[in-house]
Each structure stands twice: as structure tokens, then as C-alpha cells.
Simulated scan of single mutants.
Amino acid sequence: MNSAIPLSKALEAEQIIEIFNDLFLVSHDTCLKGGAMEPLYEPSSTGAPACIYFREDFASSALHEIAHWCIAGTVRRKQLDYGYWYDPDGRGSEAQQAFLNAEARPQALEWCFARSSGIRFSLSMDNLDAPIDAEAASRFASAVVIQARGFVAQGLPRRAERMFDALAASRGLKVSLDTLEFAVEDLR
């Protein structure tokens, strides 16, 4: 890992890849790669490690996809894209609500990772072709805050804790999750 990153400098995608792969390539047979047109998780196959692909070179996309991986259990990590469904942009309100229900926890974890890596977190409704439903957006923001506060109170899943700590350490920081505060106002 690059220990020469200035304290105030946010991590870039390549640094996040290096940190993730240092932590999990050998221990969990999983690698992280950027440059994808769309995010994708491929489970390991004959001789090849599992691979988490994130969009282009977006550090925030890397953190988001890592969050999904850290939450996924053993059974889910054996399935393409963890066995989840995904409807592209233009989802109707019912499909959008199902998406938001599934996304609150990973986005809260992404927010934790963003805090330890110096990256600005932006809430994602991920339905760019649909009109914004202000009420749904407000409920979603509240759900993400509740999940983030839950991580503070109960701790992170083990793989997520290792990643959180490694992101902060790579920037020369000692960030304790229990000292972080999460509020809806931070999402505006």
C-alpha cells in the first residue's frame, strides 16, 4: 500500500484496488478491477478468483461495489452479481422502491468507506431516466442514515471493518467508526 498519501488527499480508484487486492485476493480469492461499463460481480471459476468490477475509474463506484461484496454472505458470493436482480434506468415506482429497500445498507457502508478514504459520498437513487420523487428520496436518505448509525452502534461486518481500517491507514489516519456521525443534512 502507498503510505505516502498525504493526510488530506482522497484515495483514487487505483489505490483502492491495491488496498482491496492486498487484503482479499489471497484470503478470499477475490480481486477488484475498474474499467467496466457496468458494475458486475463474477464468482470464482476454475483457477480464476472472484472478481468485482466497478465503473470506469470511479473511486466511489469501487467503494459501492466493495460494500456489496462485504455484505454478501458465502452463498451470495457464489452467484453472478450475488444472485440479485437489477432493472436498468426507467424503473417504475414499485421496482424503484424495491431497489431502494435493497440499497440502503450497501450505500450506508459505502458512506462509511467514503469517510475513511476521504471521498465525498453521494446518495444514489440510480434511476436517472425517471422523475425524482422527493418523498421517496427523503425516505431513502433517512434509511441510509439509520443503517450508517447502526454500523456505528453495532460495528461493521468483519470484511468491511478490515477494509474501513485499511482505507484510513493508507491515508495515515486512525479513524474510529464509533466517532463518526451521520446525518440526513450531510446528504444534501
Rank of each mutant, 00 (worst) to 15 (best):
A130E: 11
P49A: 09
A166S: 08
I52P: 02
W85R: 06
I119H: 12
R76H: 15
D126E: 15
I66G: 00
H64W: 14
N101R: 03
Q147H: 13
A104S: 15
A95F: 10
S93W: 03
H68F: 02
D129T: 09
F151L: 04
A168F: 07
P88H: 04
Q154R: 14
P49E: 06
S138E: 15
R162V: 11
E135S: 15
L123P: 02
A72Y: 02
F164H: 06
V144M: 01
S124W: 05
R91F: 10
A168T: 06
A67Q: 14
R76M: 15
E65W: 04
G92Y: 05
E135K: 15
N127W: 00
R162M: 14
G118D: 05
W111F: 01
R149T: 08
D89W: 10
L63E: 02
R105P: 13
D129S: 12
P131C: 10
F151S: 03
A102W: 04
S142R: 09
A98T: 12
A62F: 00
A160Y: 01
E135L: 14
Y41T: 10
S117W: 02
S60P: 08
E161M: 10
R91T: 10
F140S: 03
T46S: 10
F54L: 05
Q96D: 12
A102H: 11
A114P: 00
R55T: 04
D57L: 11
P49K: 06
M125R: 07
R162Q: 14
T74D: 14
I119V: 13
P43W: 05
R55A: 04
V75R: 15
R76C: 12
F164E: 02
A62I: 02
E65P: 03
H68K: 01
F140M: 01
A62D: 01
A134V: 13
E65L: 05
S124T: 07
A166P: 13
W69E: 01
S61G: 03
F140L: 02
G118K: 05
E94M: 02
S122T: 07
D81Q: 08
E135W: 10
A72I: 01
D133G: 03
Y53D: 03
S142C: 07
A104K: 15
P131W: 12
A67T: 14
Q147C: 13
N127M: 00
M125A: 03
P106S: 14
S117Y: 04
H68A: 00
P88A: 05
A160M: 03
I146W: 06
F140R: 03
R76K: 15
Y84R: 13
H64T: 14
I71T: 12
I66L: 00
R159A: 12
D89K: 07
S60Y: 12
F54K: 06
I66H: 01
V75Y: 11
S138K: 14
F164L: 05
Q147N: 14
